[in-house]
Design a protein around this nucleic acid. Structure first.
Lengths: 193, 193
DNA sequence: CCTACCGATCGGTAGG
DNA sequence: CCTACCGATCGGTAGG
């Protein structure tokens, strides 16, 4: 790991703990054992650190989506795949994912534009899976925009719940929760005695 | 509305927009048309503003829970009531609710303790409703702690989605989503032809 | 509610 | 990678 990567990871940890605006470059310098000004031999600016964390994370999520799509699985299996993927992202990159989700609004205006384009691309591809499942009869989705957001918000549990639950419990419970929420009740129209 | 209330509301708006650490008392002064130092004739400190916003919100949620409990409704109706209540909180107090949810970690340590006690009390009462519904057979909940968090995270859509959807669409969709997610599939064990 | 001002801290640069 | 330092801004106080 290069010194730059080391600094970027330390920055992600601090941005998560204290939030981006409340993190000072002096905090960061102390964490990596440098004098404050020495940081600038490795990185351009504080803003640049946030940019790299958010953009790298955005591309990782898009790579996961790519793998999901080329697998040609059924929509329900694709949903399971995506939930597992979000969980693994949160486990492997807890700080980056938190910063990606909660601190992106502090990106500079031009970077923010690029970032939102990536987010939108992900959203469209996620909704396509939901709609495909709906058309096939696997899902029952009356308002795909809202359902998409509900699923995404549900998955924030992976990085917001800390280490309170086992990774496996979380994965299973979240998949079940979402599956129930978007699957057409198989008893619809069948009277239950 | 007193001058103090006016300042507190303006503070909630700014804390939501920019985050607590990134909001300066000079921003706030400009917003209410005062010189920066004049703010301190009405409030004690920046920290105090955050405290009042978060604590007031916490008590409002507990009041909602109180009303829900005394109604003696069935657990499914209580869930609908709570979802509607969260939605109305977000509609009526969008800034306060956002600050309550996203900025509470910047509370000073002693206030943070009080705050977390209120949050925990709410959580326990919410889970009691879920467990009661489970025992009655209305719900199917295999891990109440995780399900509680999933429901709470789902409801953040009310203040995170801005004005993208109508209040009524949101309410209906969120209630349906959660209801499906925690209701035992009535076809369980019934073969579907 | 204002003018004037405080010490502390901020992100970042110059020069070596 | 360090020493030394910059102008800007921070939350808040004194005194009226």
């Amino acid at each position: 790991m290069t010194r730059k990567q080391e600094i970027t990871r330390a920055a992600a940890d601090l941005f998560r703990q204290k939030g981006y605006p409340a993190t000072s470059m002096r905090d960061l310098a102390a964490k990596v054992g440098l004098e404050p000004s020495s940081i600038y031999s490795h990185i351009r600016s504080k803003e640049d650190l946030l940019t790299q964390i958010c953009m790298e994370c955005a591309h990782m999520f898009l790579d996961g989506m790519e793998k999901c799509e080329v697998s040609k699985m059924s929509p329900p299996l694709m949903m399971d795949y995506l939930v597992d993927f979000h969980c693994e992202m949160a486990v492997r990159h807890p700080s980056s994912v938190t910063v990606f989700n909660d601190e992106w609004r502090f990106l500079s205006p031009d970077i923010l534009g690029q970032f939102l384009k990536l987010r939108k691309a992900y959203e469209i591809r996620f909704k396509d899976i939901l709609m495909k499942g709906h058309r096939k009869g696997d899902f029952y989705i009356s308002h795909v925009d809202i359902v998409f957001e509900l699923i995404i918000h549900s998955m924030t549990i992976f990085y917001k719940s800390g280490k309170r639950y086992s990774e496996n419990d979380l994965k299973i419970q979240v998949k079940e929760f979402i599956k129930r929420a978007i699957t057409k009740d198989t008893a619809d129209g069948i009277p239950v005695i």
